Amino acid sequence: MSAIRVMIVDDSAVVRQVVRQALSADPGIEVISAASDPLFALEHMKRQWPDVIVLDIEMPRMDGLTFLRKLMAEHPTPVVICSSLAASGSDAAMNALAAGAVSIITKPTSGLKQFLEDSSNDIVQAVKAAARANIRRLARPAAGTPAAAPRPRLSADAVIPATPAGGLGSGAGMVRTTERFVAIGTSTGGTQALEAVLTRLPAVAPPIVIVQHMPERFTAMFAERLNGLCAIEVREARHGDRITPGRALIAPGGKHMMVTRSGAQYTVEVVDGPLVNRHRPSVDVLFRSCAKFAGRNATGIIMTGMGDDGARGLREMHDTGATTYAEDESTCVVFGMPKEAIRLGGVDHVLPLDRIPEAIMQSVRG
């Protein structure tokens, strides 16, 4: 299999050198060029086009966001943003995600060389994930999250125990309720996918709870941005929030979110805990809580994303009576999470992205 061809575009010679060393150490990656600004990069790209671009935001002559938008409009190419603005200028980071960046690596403003050396594995994994992105989907504004570094892999058991057969999720021992809600899990490409879905929902849409793999600081801004675009209310979830019609709650980055019952009403719990499937928030944690406390009153939807987080939880929802959906491969940026959910037998229906809003509206009718 041919190596992933990477171009580095950053005005810092230190960044270009350290990132080149980190990527070149992996036999599956070839750094074909490094440029100090986008205009130099375009000259290089006339000779050889990269498979993935590692791009800074703040640069002379042309800023990274302008270059990113130009790429996505003219020749869609997977881009990993590597920028200090991801921490202090989060609007720029969100604009990069909206413009089509596959993932973001946050550079510190000091201790840069040591940080890049320590984060070399994150950079390698982000490039590899970007290389697998669906370029057809990236032709529209698309986004994702930084690839997780290798860590001990824990299941949802580390946060919430499984539901025994015939337990709460199947309806035994629960106060009857007519309330229904939708749970959505997504990762790479999910910011674009969620925008496409949520902006098509009317103000009277059913309650929605969402896990989008994102680091801290980003989820609040992402929710705020969607709230300005959607007829429904969209915001970052807070512990104890009621799940109500016309509202979508997005799990905060760095926290797990679970659904629980309060009498006949559903609320969310926002809790600390270990990484599950190397993620926090984890889709599996959310979906398991839905299986445990809602059963057939919930609808589960898994959309574009790398890996398998959410696949087992969706199967648990399916087994306790929930109706379940997976996004079709034709519209996924990365088909990993839906594919694994389908393989495990937890999916009732497979739909392209443009049919998911209709499925959400149908869910309130049972």
Rank of each mutant, 00 (worst) to 15 (best):
V6M: 03
Q21I: 15
A25D: 14
D26Y: 06
E30F: 09
S33H: 09
A34P: 11
F40S: 12
F40E: 12
L42I: 15
L42S: 07
E43M: 09
H44E: 15
H44D: 13
Q48E: 13
Q48Y: 04
V52L: 10
I57P: 09
M59C: 14
M59K: 14
F67N: 09
F67L: 03
L68E: 13
L68S: 05
R69L: 14
A73W: 01
V80N: 10
V80E: 01
S84I: 04
A87S: 10
S88H: 11
S88Y: 09
S90D: 05
A93G: 09
A93D: 05
N95G: 06
L97H: 03
A99R: 05
G100V: 12
I104M: 03
S119I: 00
I123W: 06
V124R: 11
A126F: 00
V127H: 12
V127N: 08
R132M: 10
R132D: 10
N134Y: 06
I135P: 08
P141Q: 03
A147T: 12
R153N: 14
L154Q: 14
S155R: 07
D157N: 12
I160R: 00
G169W: 00
A172G: 02
R176Y: 00
T177R: 01
T199N: 05
V204E: 14
V204N: 13
I208V: 11
V209K: 01
I210G: 02
I210N: 02
V211D: 01
H213I: 02
F218G: 04
F218T: 04
F222N: 02
R225M: 09
V234L: 05
R242C: 07
R242L: 09
R247A: 10
G254Q: 02
M257F: 10
R261H: 02
G263E: 00
Y266P: 00
P274Q: 11
L275R: 13
V283K: 02
V285C: 00
V285F: 02
R288G: 03
C290R: 13
A291H: 09
G295H: 04
G295W: 00
I301R: 07
D309G: 08
G310E: 06
G313S: 01
R315G: 11
D319L: 08
A326M: 06
E327D: 06
D328V: 05
V333S: 00
V334F: 09
V334N: 02
P338H: 13
K339I: 03
A341G: 05
L351P: 13
L353K: 07
L353V: 10
R355T: 06
R355N: 07
R355D: 12
I356H: 09
E358I: 08
S363T: 03
R365C: 02
R365G: 02
G366H: 08
